[in-house]
Design a binder for these strands. Structure first.
Lengths: 228, 228
DNA sequence: ACAAAAGTGTTCAGTCTACACCCATGG
DNA sequence: CCATGGGTGTAGACTGAACACTTTTGT
């Protein structure tokens, strides 16, 4: 007996991307304004349907590439949202992903989507269940950020201790003591201090650091665990 | 402009369930022997297709009910597995769930599925990507078990400290010191000690405890966090 | 009386938290 | 020379880990 698949229903399957960025001060989220019905003109997550010739990860990368022009974006699958009426016009099963990107000057957002960065704090209401997706994504981001060095995905290659602390404060929505923060980071010994300084923030200037991924991987293989 | 959904492909969407149990000694997993091609006769997770009139959670509950006769099983969605060729005969997107159930004497497993409990340690190889699903589920179970009192889902309503310790040792694959374990549990103050004893394990007998869900919820609302 | 499991506290080490002053520099 | 942000150490509290003996009772 072979299984007959024709008796089972088939579903539209989409991916929706929660795109996080960091401007040095606040956690940001990239939203798009819908240019089709229903809910034309309202804000939503960037999404797209999963095609026949791609898996969901690839679909998410494609969608992100379409919007930002970037390749190999840091991406993690989150949850599936499967309520029958989660979208009013059709039953669509959606798999959510969160993405972490550097907000660089030369980042060229595709203008077709009327995309815009919002502070996570005062982002607009989103369509359908996208608010819930964002909420879930923030929780996951916090969890990941506390056990994996994913913060560096949101920073430029070189950054100051202050940048890093601002980032973690933004992610966790709490403030840290400067001395405790730096000694914790330095204690992990996964950054290299360059001999360059960022002179824009103060007269004295502050040293720039890089994340040393090689060293990190080596330490991991020796049993080290990142912990914030 | 309204979106035309007919141009997008539709997919078979399944749920696959990683069903955990506990026999007082070892973590167990309930597997079914496939009674259809392909891979007839091999072991797999229990699964089923998501219908048009149900969401994925409901599909998973339905599938579990079919197999075990139980209702309201503890269930959590895990991941989506979307590789194009993850099954050889059709493209099927699968959403995995893990379930926690008490293994009771009166549990009547549906005989049509040739289901069998295996020690997690020496479970057989599974079809497709089901081994990966199980691996992911164990990691999630550990993570959840360390921050939520889900262990009690796997135990009968009354249990001894030894049972509880055995369970956590099975979940985390490590052994704990008896004194540290009991004082940690007692310190959380979420169990009630009954005046009954389990006399089967020793001459002295050991007291039975119950999980006090009301007290737990109250403590949670006051900021308490479960931590193992 | 003895075997077998239940029950129970203390000490030590490491980690986390709170906290304040001097430094370097551009203007 | 002074205003601004950068950089640095220590003491006390707390938490997690190691560790051994007494109790109970059925046989």
């Amino acid at each position: 007996m072979e299984q007959d698949y024709s008796q089972y229903p088939r579903h539209l399957v989409a991916v929706d991307c929660i795109i996080f960025g960091f401007d040095g001060e606040h956690l940001k989220i990239l939203l798009v304004k819908r240019n089709f019905e229903p809910q034309l003109g309202e804000w939503s997550l960037m999404g797209g349907f999963v095609g026949n010739e791609e898996n969901a990860d690839e679909a998410a990368q494609r969608v992100l590439h379409t919007l930002t022009g970037l390749e190999n974006i840091y991406l993690e699958q989150l949850n599936s949202y499967t309520e029958i009426h989660r979208e009013p016009t059709a039953r669509i099963i959606s798999i959510s992903y969160y993405a972490l990107i550097h907000i660089e000057k030369d980042l060229q957002i595709n203008e077709n989507y009327s995309a815009q960065w919002f502070d996570l704090q005062n982002a607009p209401d989103l369509i359908f269940d996208h608010n819930e997706m964002v909420k879930d994504a923030v929780l996951r981001l916090r969890r990941r950020a506390s056990t994996r060095p994913i913060g560096f995905e949101l920073l430029p290659p070189k950054f100051t201790m202050k940048d890093l602390q601002n980032l973690y404060e933004a992610i966790f929505s709490e403030t840290f003591d400067k001395r405790n923060f730096t000694s914790k980071i330095n204690g992990m010994d996964i950054l290299v201090k360059t001999d360059e300084k960022d002179m824009t923030s103060s007269k004295k200037g502050s040293f720039l650091y890089r994340f040393d991924e090689k060293k990190y991987n080596k330490k991991i293989s020796q049993g080290f665990m990142f912990k914030m």
